[in-house]
């Protein structure tokens, strides 16, 4: 175990962990950021997405130590129930969640997509969410939510 510093949701955190521990365990168990979900641990489902350098990255395998000096944003860093991010508001408005387990990952991928391309076409949206799986079949509502979020952000 060693000490190292991670910048998460705008704050510096000194963590004591083995630097090869997958980032997700540090985020969830040391920093209490349980909105980051573990779905497979194999970089195959996107449930564990976080934003790093503006890109959506999976946090379930990459070692925590490799994120030093690379600021991380998790779902908790986007908005709260009293102060929702427009993407979160759009997901709520479209009721884009069944069990909801995949949703934090979906929202993080959406954020990365819209930051890069504020007015994506439908195929671009689908491509932007290509790494995210949803077993409940909420895709239809999620697509609507992303279009709504893009509209809101652009007006």
């Amino acid at each position: 175990m060693t000490n190292f510093t991670l910048v998460v949701n705008g704050h510096n955190h000194v963590v004591t962990a083995d630097p090869d521990t997958p980032l997700i365990y540090v985020l969830r168990n040391d920093l209490g950021l349980k909105g980051v979900k573990l779905g497979c641990g194999l970089e195959q489902c996107g449930a564990c997405m976080v934003l790093v350098d503006g890109k959506a990255e999976m946090s379930c395998s990459a070692p925590a130590g490799s994120f030093v000096e690379r600021p991380i944003t998790t779902i908790e860093g986007l908005g709260t129930a009293d102060d929702l991010h427009p993407i979160q508001r759009a997901f709520m408005a479209e009721r884009a969640a069944q069990c909801g387990y995949c949703i934090p990952g979906m929202i993080i991928s959406t954020k990365a997509l819209l930051d890069k391309n504020p007015d994506p076409s439908e195929p671009e949206i689908r491509a932007g969410l290509a790494d995210n799986l949803c077993r409940c079949g909420t895709h239809g509502s999620i697509l609507k939510a992303i279009k709504r979020a893009a509209r809101e952000i652009n007006t």
Binding site: A81, L84, Q88, A97, G100, I103
Partner: peptide, 16 residues
């Protein structure tokens, strides 16, 4: 009901 927690990542699943 319950959507705010799901979109904010604050709904506690058993795993959490």
């Amino acid at each position: 009901l319950g959507f705010a927690g799901l979109v904010c990542g604050t709904t506690a699943f058993l795993h959490d």
